[in-house]
């Protein structure tokens, strides 16, 4: 299996100098063939001087970690990424680091395909108060409700697992030619917390 950098390098080459999109991000061509500047996709055509230059990795990370009102964004791949910034032209290793910190796991989920994990498997690995999510199986109502309110309404990823899952091929076909898909191979911890809340709420009724 080629490394993640080789796969991204090939994808950038295939874009042959055109912008490449990943969720709400755009990878804009820069001076040299393999360098890219990152921005919010809505800022693709904005004059660079109107955007704040993020000087380093910690600054780039903070953009995704907090929203414009500086509230925590536990779900990094949620819509609503802050706008108005740009990075410098990043070489491939720096670009990969920046993408890992803006959209954690997005590159490996795309480039290193793994079999989707059924929710009941993910639930088995939970401990403490999250063990409760083991009660809703692979199709339970609390899981469906949480998926509806979180995955469908508040996340840019597309599920490869659980109720209403799509196949990798379906996701790739639905992704425009100028974009990298955002598959979700396994329930994230944010969703697990939401499922637990749904179970709690149902019990209280």
């Amino acid at each position: 299996m080629p490394s993640l950098s080789r796969i991204l390098e090939a994808r950038l080459a295939a874009a042959s100098g055109r912008p490449l999109f990943l969720g709400e991000l755009v990878l804009l061509p820069a001076r040299s063939e393999l360098e890219r500047e990152l921005r919010h996709r809505a800022d693709t055509g904005t004059a660079p001087e109107s955007l704040v230059l993020l000087p380093d990795l910690p600054a780039i990370r903070e953009i995704a970690k907090n929203d414009a009102a500086w509230a925590y964004r536990p779900l990094r791949v949620a819509p609503g990424l802050q706008r108005g910034w740009r990075t410098e032209a990043l070489s491939l290793p720096a670009l990969i680091e920046a993408l890992h910190s803006l959209y954690p796991s997005a590159l490996p989920f795309w480039a290193v395909p793994r079999p989707p994990v059924p929710f009941s498997e993910t639930a088995k690995r939970q401990s403490g108060m999250y063990r409760l999510v083991q009660t809703c199986g692979d199709e339970g109502a609390p899981l469906r409700a949480a998926v509806e309110k979180t995955c469908a309404a508040r996340c840019l990823r597309q599920r490869l697992w659980g109720p209403g899952a799509r196949t990798r091929e379906e996701i790739e076909r639905a992704t425009p030619d100028d974009a990298i898909p955002l598959p979700c191979p396994e329930a994230c911890n944010y969703l697990i917390a939401q499922v637990r809340e749904e179970i709690d709420a149902a019990r209280k009724q």
């Binding site: 990094r76 890992h100 796991s105 793994r114 994230c188």
Partner: peptide, 20 residues
């Protein structure tokens, strides 16, 4: 250098997929 977490992404489970 990579970071990974139990309750945040990138998660423990997938971190090695991004290490070269």
């Amino acid at each position: 250098v990579h970071e990974c977490f139990w309750k945040e992404e990138p998660n423990f489970r997938f971190i090695l997929d991004q290490v070269e």
